[in-house]
Design a protein around this nucleic acid. Structure first.
Lengths: 191, 191
DNA sequence: CGAAAATTTGACATGACTCAACTGGAGTGG
DNA sequence: CCACTCCAGTTGAGTCATGTCAAATTTTCG
């Protein structure tokens, strides 16, 4: 369990065993069941969350009551609403589990402590966020430039591991289309 | 000119005059004319760019030859393709000027030097990127949840300063709609 | 096993796009 | 300084992709 986190944190800046110990002292382990919320709209995001096992979805509910998935979370990924976490304001997102899920999480205060005790972590999280920003930009440009079938193609190429683990209507919600449209795209492809 | 940059860099972490001096030694001033490119598809992004005066657009050209604007840049904003800058790979974006524009820019090597000499800048840029990521996420969720007229409404509320300085067809490209559709939305609103 | 949820399919509606024509203003060269 | 061109913006008509509503079928899970 800790191995995965330490390996993740060492990806851009190596950690020695003393630093790994500090990490272990600051993160907390938690288990969630399928369908359980990790975060609900209106809550303040108290933790940044690292997924050890399982699948999560981060989604938003619009005025018309429709759900829109912004991100799936798998093993070795970070989830949470950064804006709410940093500003301590209520989130407009929901995060729940599509399978039983195990996480390690850290509070804002403890993350500050980590930055203090292991300053190179500041760099690590800058890079993590950079990558998240780049992914978000690329998804945005795809949503402007590409048709639904193209976006679906891109999705299964980029995230084959997700495609196998989540329901079709979840993927439809991620792509910004209806489940019916996705079903039609899929039947087109097969022919 | 330097005041604006120093003020920007001091926003989250104060700088003393010695540190301000280091900043001045690492950034370079440059002028561009209206319609001139700051960055072209295929180039490697050598600089992160801070806008002192003027307006830029960052856009992408899709397979069908259509332009899609990802970002406008105004005074006191940062522009550039982070992915290309960090990985030193060719960019797929173009950045050009909608007005005569003055910038201060910094190379990757000099930015590393800045991080070394003024470590708190690491924090500053983490926060800048966090904010960019949050903005990108919010735009993504808007593009999933909202209709074209709603996105236009949001845009003029959020960026009234941009709306006044750029042509309508540029705004249409930013919103992911055709100029004709934008024109029809505007004539609806007036009635 | 049985209820609830997910997927598929059909018919129809609609929002946005394309193509095309027209208008008006800005910039340019004679 | 005027005529001309060019480009942005507007408007209309027809088309297409995707959404909506509804029903049938299959799968999932308690």
């Amino acid at each position: 369990m800790w191995d995965l986190l330490i390996k993740n944190l060492s990806k851009f800046v190596p950690l020695d065993s003393q630093e790994a110990g500090i990490v272990q002292s600051l993160f907390t382990y938690k288990k969630y069941r399928r369908k359980q919320y990790i975060l609900q709209e209106g809550d303040v995001t108290r933790y940044e969350t690292f997924i050890v096992k399982g699948v999560t979805r981060t989604y938003e509910v619009d005025d018309k009551g429709q759900e829109h998935i912004l991100q799936f979370g798998l093993e070795d990924w970070w989830v949470g609403d950064l804006y709410s976490f940093l500003t301590e304001s209520p989130t407009s997102y929901n995060i729940d589990c599509l399978e039983d899920t195990e996480v390690l999480h850290i509070t804002k205060a403890d993350l500050e402590t980590l930055y203090e005790k292991v300053p190179k972590m500041e760099r690590h999280f800058r890079i993590i966020i950079q990558n998240a920003f780049i992914a978000s930009s690329q998804r945005l440009s795809a949503s402007l430039a590409k048709s639904a079938p193209e976006r679906y193609e891109d999705f299964i190429k980029k995230y084959p591991q997700i495609e196998q683990r989540v329901a079709n209507h979840q993927i439809a919600s991620y792509l910004g289309i209806t489940p019916q449209t996705l079903s039609r795209i899929r039947s087109q492809e097969r022919s």
